[in-house]
Design a protein around this nucleic acid. Sequence first.
DNA 1: CGCTAATTTGACGCTAGTCAAGCCATGTGG
DNA 2: CCACATGGCTTGACTAGCGTCAAATTAGCG
Lengths: 212, 212
Amino acid sequence: MYAAAQARQQSVEQAEQLAKAQVSGPHLVATYKAGREIYAEGDLNDKCYQVSTGAVRVYRLLSDGRRQVVSFHLPGEMFGFEAGTDHSFFAEAITDTTLAVFGRRHMQERSRDLLALALAGMARAQQHLLVIGRQCAVERIAAFLVDLCERQGGGRLLRLPMSRQDIADYLGLTIETVSRVMTKLKARSVIALRDARTVDIMRLDALRSLCC
Amino acid sequence: MYAAAQARQQSVEQAEQLAKAQVSGPHLVATYKAGREIYAEGDLNDKCYQVSTGAVRVYRLLSDGRRQVVSFHLPGEMFGFEAGTDHSFFAEAITDTTLAVFGRRHMQERSRDLLALALAGMARAQQHLLVIGRQCAVERIAAFLVDLCERQGGGRLLRLPMSRQDIADYLGLTIETVSRVMTKLKARSVIALRDARTVDIMRLDALRSLCC
DNA sequence: CGCTAATTTGACGCTAGTCAAGCCATGTGG
DNA sequence: CCACATGGCTTGACTAGCGTCAAATTAGCG
């Protein structure tokens, strides 16, 4: 089964949370507990966000509950800008998360930066398309690990904030396949697993060559 | 086998073609024969384009020749803007095509419009991710046909400028699967095929419900 | 009219999905 | 402190959908 989105009914608390932050000027702070919704499909799209600590998933659902995670966002990364006045995606905190929130005014002042961000977002999505459309399970996982490794600064020790289900829904696979590929990579000593969420990259070159 | 990109060596002729058009001000016209390259990976990214007549495919290649078509562009649609100073994609004319070409100056003047285009492009890529990541072959084809139908104005008669290979590489499938799904949809009288490139949408509602 | 490329169809195999059970770490209450 | 529940992850057995390979058919074009 695919993961259906849970955690939909907490919007009230968040509304309070945001209200407390009084969004209007630049750089206000909001905090979210693990699993909490940041925005939902249909919500007004008038802010954007930068992760300070924690991690965020942005995803879309099909009516039968199938989920596609379109992006993860780590500390330092921006998200939340979309075409249209309403969001077409959901965003949730994966772990406990703090965000810098930018309001409409700030976005208008910085539309030049926003263009660069939008272009980068498009490039990221299109790269992701290649991975999902034309690579097999091992290649997808390899690409995912390499990408995450680079975004965390290139260190060999990788902390995964997201669950196997999140990874599966990001890569168009199932948790079982993600798990099996991980153990296969472990067996080949390409990676080592301290625990399920902590990956040691043993042979980055091998991972890279798997991405094609 | 996946389609390797052919048609790489004609860049010289095109350089002439573009030179002839003297790109500098807004709205210059360029024409391309079917299969000709408009830009390649690594080319300088300093123009953008609007299709006047014909159709364009934008794609990326893996080193072993696997190809992912990230977008098709029909008359009226813009393409060619990317992050970075160089292109990371290839663009080719599918059929004989004429384009309006906009130079760097024009793009700077209209960075506000460009933002909207970039956001739309990102949305399109992310929608495409959901289709490829989480839908089965029939659903992908249905989504593709509905999308194309809407972009051609909603008429029930659909002319496909692209080959089965292009469709396969767009949807992350093989030509054989595309062909089989088409015949299955024909058997169910959801569509009719005048010829391979001309589709009659018989039951648009049925197609839509297949997309979820 | 014949050549070539594109598309369709068929037979078969493999990758990844499904279903189910087991494992492991964590937390809770007796 | 232990029994037990819980949720996330792993593993195994089996299956289905799509890919591969090959051949037939059709369409396009000089």
